[in-house]
Amino acid sequence: GPIILETYRVVADFVKTSKNEINLHSGDLVEIVEKSQNGWWFCQCESKHGWVPASYLEPLDGPEEAEDVEPNYEGELYITINAYKAEQEDEISLDMGETTEVIHKLLDGWWVARKGEEVGYFPSMYLQKCGKKEKY
């Protein structure tokens, strides 16, 4: 049968920063082909297709972000595979190779990470689950 794609509405203008992305205009409707856990979603919009940030989209059927899982305050251990320096107040800076506890995985690709007493958002694409044998 036909593949039914989910439709999302663009909530803010987005200007592409690399070649596989597409520009978005607030109010546009896009169809989602693939949802990557790192917060980039592959979409098609009229004749264009490419990657866009999930956080710039809301489901057409309702503004609820129902797909986010609940926070897990015990945390899950992850190791950073890339350093990231916080650019905003609510982010956390970590070097490469640090272990951190992830307490909330959000669909937008920014997960809440805890290191000691510090808590903040960190890019999920720079995290790899501890104990998982994957090459990067």
């Binding site: 990557s36 917060g39 972000e65 920014w110």
Partner: peptide, 22 residues
């Protein structure tokens, strides 16, 4: 290929979306 997602983290949610999370 275009099927490969960007190698940089996506931008943080726009202010419109952050308000909803509060």
């Amino acid at each position: 290929s275009i099927k490969n997602p960007p190698q940089n983290p996506p931008p943080r949610p726009p202010p419109e979306m952050r308000r909803k999370r509060v």
